[in-house]
Amino acid sequence: MALTETELAAKITGLNDSRTADNLQLAMWTALFYYYITTYDEEVSRIWPQPFKKVGKILFLITRYSQIPQLFIWLSWFLPSRGPWSLKGCIVLFELGTALEVLSIGCAEVSFWICLYALLEGKRKYFAIIVLVWLGFFIPIQTIQWMGFATYIAIEPGPFDRAYGYSCRYANTPGAQAAKYELVTLYMALARTILFMIASVVVIFVRYRRRNSLLTVIRREGGMYYICSSLVLFFACVIRTPGFPVENPYISRTVIKVLRNLAQYIFAERLLLQMQKTVYKTTRAQTAMSTLVFDDDNVPKTEKTVDHELSGLSGRTVHS
């Protein structure tokens, strides 16, 4: 049946929006992989020599290299690839891509939580509190988020979409509340980000009054991460609030998602790289950070280093 002029215009508008969103995603991947290429030498020299049991190496490699399968899934998922995907295959791609994104974002966030734990000197009571708080946000957010994802189904692309080579198309089941699920998770993520940012500021500026290179890195990278994440999440919540006037919500949400992912991935990896670069065992915080996240075999812990540690902790010079 031939499309009316109005239906044809709507189809073209929807396709243009989809292609614009795809271009934004492609721009994100381009920027991300450009960053990976330009920091590859640092990765090889600073991250690869670390033992695999070290938390810093695990978080860094998962955050970075989980992006590669995500890219290939996205290329098969959204771009006009003309791939021979069945409806079941499209759903599998959707679920796998979503799981990888949750994994990479989770590792990026954990990098900053680990910093807070190390700054609290790696004590077990603080570990228990941090884990409980993190799980208290992570489990509900992921549960509600997956409830929203479960409302998506794969549909056969229409002739208009197939003409452009799209193999996978998705839609919500009738009566689905995916938008409400997404809004709830965004507000919870915003609350978690603000809460942790406040906790980090209190720990850094109240517990550690003396400046050193490691704390400078945590303040700079961590501060930029939380400022960017908080602003992006805030605008994401505002845009998705029912009744808020926005000219093109689909494109706006894509822009927000792209900016959020870039902030999370890049600042988390920069934090880990800069931490490894500046780990010198001169304060108790740095010793805990070194032991927990990275090894620093290139800087022997000499008697002079021990004396400097005690000097940094007591605020007075210790003479040997």
Rank of each mutant, 00 (worst) to 15 (best):
F52N: 07
T291Y: 04
A189L: 10
I68N: 01
L26V: 05
S290M: 13
P300G: 06
A163C: 06
M289H: 07
A31Q: 00
G83K: 01
A178D: 06
R192N: 11
Q70A: 12
V306R: 14
P157F: 11
A128D: 01
F205P: 01
D17T: 10
N261Q: 13
R270Y: 08
R64C: 09
V92G: 01
S311Y: 02
Q276S: 15
M188C: 12
M197N: 03
T241F: 11
L59I: 06
T6L: 14
A189T: 03
A176W: 04
R219F: 11
A108P: 03
C228H: 09
L215A: 08
Y35L: 07
L116S: 08
V217C: 11
E43L: 14
S213V: 01
F33N: 05
I153D: 05
V318K: 08
C237T: 11
R211H: 14
F267A: 07
C90T: 00
K125W: 06
A191L: 09
Y65E: 03
V201S: 06
A2L: 06
C90H: 01
P242C: 09
A179P: 00
K11Q: 12
R210C: 08
T98N: 12
S45C: 03
L87H: 01
G223S: 10
Y36A: 15
V306D: 13
L259A: 15
G89A: 10
I105A: 13
L183N: 08
G175A: 06
Q67D: 03
G56H: 09
R124D: 11
L272G: 10
I62T: 07
G106M: 05
Q50M: 08
S45I: 00
